[in-house]
């Protein structure tokens, strides 16, 4: 049975919102004060609304992550990019890595470059999920042997 995780990442959603809001604020800054002054409440309301809509769109395009996995394979998709699919049996070792921001990743080691599953961004328990990945890999290895 396939399980899917695609939680909203509040930090990246806020970041997307802020990018859009700042772009609009810069545009407004270069407009004549006489034009904006009398209607600045309305301009602010429009900016906030547009930033919310475009921020959501930007978040979905760039940052949103979707991770789905079954007992034999898993798929990782970031933003609107092409999903990358892998078999658990392609990997032989699992480690848990922490970056300087305190985010955890489950690192899968195989014959090539290690692959990272950003468990903190996917709001999975890193320590628990690492054991789950180890279990899935060893099960796949033993069934293919």
């Amino acid at each position: 049975m396939e399980k899917t995780r695609s939680p909203i990442q509040i930090y990246y959603l806020f970041k997307s919102f802020m990018i859009m809001f700042v772009i609009q604020a810069l545009i407004v800054m270069f407009m004549p004060a006489g034009l904006i002054g009398p209607i600045w409440y309305q301009v602010l309301a429009v900016n906030l609304t547009v930033a919310a809509v475009l921020g959501w769109y930007l978040y979905k395009q760039w940052y949103h992550m979707e991770f789905s996995y079954s007992d034999s394979r898993f798929q990782l998709k970031k933003g609107k990019g092409t999903p990358a699919s892998y078999e658990w049996s392609e990997f032989s070792q699992v480690s848990l890595a922490r970056n300087e921001y305190g985010e955890f990743k489950v690192r899968l080691h195989g014959s090539g470059e290690p692959l990272e599953i950003p468990v903190s961004k996917l709001k999975l328990d890193p320590f628990e999920f690492r054991f789950h990945a180890m279990d899935l890999i060893s099960r796949e290895k033993s069934s293919s042997a």
Binding site: V94, S95, L96, A97, R98, R107, F131
Partner: peptide
């Protein structure tokens, strides 16, 4: 080691079991 007092000594950043 990874999240607590160990970080005062070194940046223990990758853990392996078995």
């Amino acid at each position: 080691m990874m999240k607590g007092r160990g970080r005062w000594v070194a940046d223990f950043n990758e853990s392996f079991r078995a």
